[in-house]
């Protein structure tokens, strides 16, 4: 039974964050939205485990 890893897991966080922003550079809002959607799908498939994905979806929902 896997669970979502919420501990820091990215070795060089600043580099990742910069890469994420760089990927969006020069894109219109619509192109950025499309990129984000593709990215979510690609990463979700990499995770694969439905339980982990459900945990991630719940974590991402606005708190209220």
């Amino acid at each position: 039974m896997s669970t979502l890893n919420t501990a820091p897991n990215i070795a060089r966080p600043d580099d990742f964050y910069a890469a994420l922003l760089a990927a969006h550079e020069g894109l219109s809002k619509a192109e950025s939205d499309a990129l984000n959607a593709r990215l979510v799908l690609i990463l979700s498939n990499h995770v694969g485990d439905m339980e982990v994905l459900e945990e991630a979806l719940a974590l991402a929902r606005p708190r209220g």
Binding site: D33, A34, A37, R38, V40, L41, I42, N45
Partner: peptide, 17 residues
């Protein structure tokens, strides 16, 4: 629609989609 189009875009390149 954004997710739908993302799936279709990716389906051309990668099998998982």
């Amino acid at each position: 629609r954004i997710f739908r189009d993302a799936v279709l875009d990716l389906s051309e390149q990668v099998a998982f989609a």
